[in-house]
């Protein structure tokens, strides 16, 4: 175990001279006990049940989760949940319909990452909804993947969607296939395939990096209707510039719930709003504290409270 003096991973409010005074030395190593010592005394191992440095995060997470669960409960009890319209998702039917009319396929790209990435999972949940629409329109959806596990999961998702639409005989597992794990190898395949096959609708929903603009520009060049969604902030401008519709950040995570229309899922979206309200409250309180603190001086209570908010609660 590494003992750091003063510890780099220590909780600043619990250092020597702070209250309580016995927590003068804290060091952290994954899975190992904490070292606690009174000022001037030898450190003693102490295995706490909870990581003290993450207590505030746990509390914030609990509040948001409670909000989501409460709203799911409200939705189940029959309270109507109104969710604002999302043009990008309303355009799914239009995009698939266009592909059907033109006799071309629908391309769905679930991003570069594996199944341990929440954006990939969010992308696949949308794939389930899109595939269902595709099955109902009797069109074809092609899903080239960059990870083997994503291919397997996508096959299950699309097959279930075809089953749900009553078109299990139309399901073709060969349209969901593995290309390569390599970022630019994957992009080279996709752009070549798009240029040759000219899919009428392209969906890019998942985790994307530098390839986002290459894909979106190629789709634009072939005249496809394009719907993109990612939580990768640095790639959003590229999708906004080159795609017809873009699901920005939280919209991407809300897409599956929105498309399902199920009260449970719409309730969870309302729960997100509780979290947003909470975040906005912290923003307002924090701004007020910093403003008043800067007027009254760094030793004033508002300035100390602002420092605690930034250094402890939001760190």
């Amino acid at each position: 175990m590494t003992v750091v003096h003063p510890p780099s991973s220590a909780v600043p409010g619990l250092l020597a001279g702070a209250d309580p005074p016995f927590l003068s030395c804290l060091a952290w190593d994954a899975g190992a006990p904490w070292l606690l010592a009174a000022a001037g005394e030898a450190p003693k191992p102490f295995l706490g049940f909870l990581d003290p440095g993450r207590l505030w995060l746990l509390l914030l997470l609990a509040i948001v989760c409670a909000g989501v669960v409460a709203c799911i409960g409200l939705a189940r009890s029959g309270r109507p949940m109104k969710v604002r319209r999302m043009p990008a998702l309303d355009a799914v039917d239009e995009a698939v319909g266009r592909a059907t009319e033109m006799g071309r396929s629908v391309l769905f790209v679930p991003g570069l990452m594996d199944m341990n990435d929440i954006e990939t999972i969010a992308g696949l949940t949308v794939l389930g909804r899109v595939s269902r629409t595709v099955a109902e329109y009797d069109a074809q959806v092609e899903v080239p993947t960059a990870r083997s596990l994503v291919m397997t999961a996508a096959r299950e998702t699309v097959e279930a969607a075809y089953l749900a639409a009553g078109r299990s005989d139309s399901f073709n597992p060969d349209l969901i296939y593995y290309v390569t794990d390599e970022q630019f190898g994957y992009v080279a395949y996709l752009t070549g395939m798009m240029s040759r096959q000219k899919p009428a609708a392209c969906f890019y929903l998942g985790k994307f990096f530098a390839e986002s603009l290459i894909l979106a520009e190629t789709g634009n060049a072939i005249g496809a209707i394009q719907i993109a969604g990612t939580a990768e902030v640095s790639q959003l401008p590229f999708f906004v510039a080159a795609c017809d519709y873009t699901l920005i950040g939280e919209e991407f995570f809300a897409a599956s719930a929105y498309l399902s229309g199920e009260p449970d899922q719409l309730g969870s979206l309302k729960g997100q709003d509780v979290g947003k309200l909470f975040a906005a409250s912290i923003l307002v309180v924090g701004t007020a504290l910093v403003t008043v603190g800067s007027i009254l001086g760094p030793e004033s209570a508002p300035a100390k409270a602002a420092a605690y908010l930034v250094g402890e609660i939001l760190r």
Partner: peptide, 15 residues
């Protein structure tokens, strides 16, 4: 956007 993403991740994970 990042605050929205964080909340979206929590809600999606819970779902």
């Amino acid at each position: 956007i990042m605050i929205g993403v964080a909340l979206g991740v929590v809600a999606t994970s819970l779902r």
